[in-house]
Each structure stands twice: as structure tokens, then as C-alpha cells.
Design a protein around this nucleic acid. Sequence first.
DNA 1: CGGTGGACCTGCTGGC
DNA 2: TGCCAGCAGGTCCACC
Length: 273
Amino acid sequence: MPELPEVETICRGLRQVLPGREIVTVEVLESRLRCRVPRDFARELEGRVFTDIRRRGKYLLISLAPDRVWIAHLGMSGKLIYVKTTYPRERHDHIIATLDNGHELRYHDPRRFGFSVVVREAQVDEVPQIRHLGPEPFDEEFHDRYLYDLASHSRRMIKDFITDQRILVGLGNIYANEALFHAGIRPTRRAWRVGRSGIKRIAEAIPRILQEAISWRGTSFSDYRDGEDRKGGFQEHLLVYGREGEECRVCSGRIKSVPIGNRSSFYCPSCQK
DNA sequence: CGGTGGACCTGCTGGC
DNA sequence: TGCCAGCAGGTCCACC
């Protein structure tokens, strides 16, 4: 489900309400979380106080004093919501942290692709999932030259390349397709054949499209909700993703779909070469 | 090493 | 109306 804009939206929302709150109790209602939630997960969190909520790629890093970080990835269908204790519980609410102010932080994930782990602050960068992540698209180290140096040595399809979280973090199926549309490049082009000007357009389109999606609080089709269980609005502004057979909003041609590695990619044959 | 294809899950939709 | 194949925002691993 969530790509960078959705995780960023959740992050900003939780940052408004969690710092200073104490976790009183934690219930882990689902034991089949693919061994990614340690048995002592609840005890690691109980009695601690939220300090800071930040994001690294598609991961939420939730700091708690003294000296713990709850690292959460929401997979395809995960939600992390802050609601009153009276807010109706649902099927697939797997982890419920009861706070000291009549609210709960609930981790909900029907498909259970997400994962959670609790580590010490100093260990965050050593966690394998975090250690191998590439630069943030909004950081200075991510620029067209960086992307070109890597792309010029890669024979992979460009869409596959830019969704590799080791190259850069944050892009998933929606925003990779959108960024390539904005750059005028077909998702099936081999990375090394995109060329310098094409890579430059991609490197510029990525942060732009992500920023725009953040301003709309992310994209919601069915599952995605922010930290207050509300939908995002960017689905109204998508130009190619999920629009197979519909009219291109730029040239009125028909949007096509092509599978890349078990996943649909969308593009406009006349706008993207 | 790189690239591919399947596995991991539940739920919803569309076609028959 | 009902059933079932196919597909969904992500990662990881085995295999060639």
C-alpha cells in the first residue's frame, strides 16, 4: 500500500499527537506476524514515552524514551492509526497500544506483509532493512548525476530500477509510473539506454511528484488511510496509474498497461518514448 | 553478479 | 445469483 507520500503523511499526523504520550499496555492480537514481531514486543514498549516520529524510505521510525525505536513497515495493506479507545475495533487490528490519554495506536494489516521490530536508537542503522536503503529523494545526495552513474551501468528496465530501494527510497508502483510519465520515458526502457537528458528529467520528476502527492496527503484506492484513518486525495490527480484504456490527460491517446516483473505498469505510448 | 519468478496473505472485482 | 480467477500500494528468496 503505502509509498513515500503515504508514509510521510502518516508520520506527520502521528508527530502531532504522539510525543509526550505514554504507552500503558500493548496487546498483540495476532501471533502470525511472520516472526517479525518478537515475543517480547509488548514488554519492550510498555511504560515508554513517545519522543519523535520520523520516516526513512517507507519505514516509520517511532522513538520512545528511554532508548527504543519501533521500526514499522506497513507492507501492502497496513495502517497505523491513532484513535479514541471507543473507536470501533476491526478484524485484522493486530497490535493495539493503549496510551495514557484515552487513545490507542492501532496497527491493522489484513495481508500481514508489514513488519515491526523494536531496537535501541544506536541499532537503527544496523537493521538489515534500513542499512541497505539508498538516498532519500529530497536529499542533496540524490541528483541527476548520481542517478545517471548508476543507471548507465544497469541493464534493468527503468521502472524496475527506480523502484529498487537500494537505488533510492520511496517509489513504489504508483509513483514510479507517474514519475516516468512526467519524464516522458517508457517504463520498459533499459536504464542504460534512457540517456542523460532522460535521467535528468526522471531525477527532477521524482521529488516533484512525491511532493505533490504529499500535499494531497497521499493516494487512497481502498486500503490506505493516514494516521487519523482518513483517505488521501492524490488518486484524483494520477495521470497514468490505474488508467489503462482511458484517455491521456495530455494528448488524449489511450493509456496502456504492460506487466513488468509480476506488476502492472502504465504509460502513454505517444507521450512516453 | 544480475535478472526472473514465485512466495508470502486477505479481500475485492469482474467475467462467466 | 454465485463462483472463481485474477489482481492489489511491497519485500524477500531460491534459482538459473
